[in-house]
């Protein structure tokens, strides 16, 4: 019996790590510009589609090539996200105090989805993993589940180091506290915000590529990933990468445990229940922080 729980734990954490990665990519943009980029889901799917495209054109890559392709996918998505960030923030150059980003990011998401539908049709793309399944507790787990866990830890460490140990990272963190003061202090705010968009692209691009064999790559599948990433973001606490790292797997494991013990119809309900409970008890999220504001 314990093997079943162990397998659920491993797979739940693996899938939850994907949500954690999306939540972290939300965070870096949110910290720098206050924007929640709803196009992240489709950018994540695009990362996965790059894995499909490579296999379709060049065949199954060797391990060395596959490892080299991760940064390639990450950089391509980072460039796309930087361009998207530039377009999203164009209207904000007239006034920071507006919500046009809400429409812009959703519009980009819809446009990407429509392009994907036109280019590859309604069928979901399916990618075979180049790795053999890994034996765990007498059963097997597809390697991408474990790689997603590793990637989430990798990006968590990188982001923590970058945001707390480098001048550029500290400048981005400062924008979260007070962008006006940051600008007054001479920070190149727009440049930092675009950099944050780029970093978020590196995260979702690499996440999509690595987890391609275990995710659904279709023109309409991004919504589910954005939603789960957003749930992980809110539960963990907006702007907290530690929160994202813990909340993502929490959502993944809770959904799988609910399915195992109660039934598949409770899979989505449980993560929403956790979300509502957290919002009632601790609206700022598990690791979120509240700040005093003069009114």
């Amino acid at each position: 019996m314990w093997q079943e729980y162990a397998i659920i734990l491993v797979r739940g954490i693996g899938l939850g790590s994907v949500y954690a990665l999306i939540a972290m990519s939300f965070n870096i943009v949110k910290v720098s510009s206050g924007i929640l980029n709803f196009a992240q889901g489709n950018m994540f799917v695009l990362g996965g589609m790059m894995a499909y495209g490579f296999v379709a054109f060049f065949g199954q890559p060797s391990l060395g090539v596959w490892i080299l392709l991760i940064p390639v996918a990450a950089i391509v998505i980072a460039v796309l996200l930087t361009i998207q960030g530039y377009l999203t923030m164009l209207p904000l150059s007239y006034s920071d105090d507006q919500q046009s980003w809400l429409i812009t990011t959703m519009a980009v998401s819809i446009i990407i989805g429509a392009i994907l539908l036109l280019v590859q049709g309604p069928n979901a793309l399916m990618v075979r993993s180049i790795f053999a399944n890994i034996p765990v507790f007498g059963m097997r787990v597809p390697a991408p589940f474990l790689m997603a866990i590793g990637l989430a830890l990798f990006w968590y460490v990188v982001l923590q180091w970058f945001l707390s140990k480098t001048l550029t990272g500290l400048a981005i963190s400062a924008l979260w506290q007070d962008p006006v003061a940051g600008r007054a202090a001479g920070l190149k705010v727009r440049r930092l915000q675009l950099l944050a968009f780029g970093i978020s692209g590196l995260i979702v691009g690499s996440a999509g590529f690595v987890s391609a064999p275990i995710i659904t790559l279709a023109s309409d599948s991004a919504v589910a990933y954005v939603l789960n990433g957003f749930v992980a973001l809110v539960i963990g606490g907006v702007a907290s990468n530690t929160g994202a790292l813990i909340a993502g797997p929490l959502v993944g494991v809770a959904a799988m445990l609910a399915t195992f013990k109660l039934g598949g119809e409770f899979q989505g309900l449980v993560s929403m229940l956790i979300l509502v409970t957290i919002l009632l008890i601790r609206p700022e999220g598990i690791f979120g922080s509240t700040a005093a504001r003069r009114v």
Binding site: I7, M256, T259, G264
Partner: peptide, 21 residues
């Protein structure tokens, strides 16, 4: 046992383990 899963869900292991029991 009876179990269900959402369309295009990434993993059905929990449902299958539940049925296997």
């Amino acid at each position: 046992g009876v179990q269900e899963f959402p369309f295009r869900s990434e993993d059905k292991t929990a449902q299958l383990l539940s049925l296997k029991s």
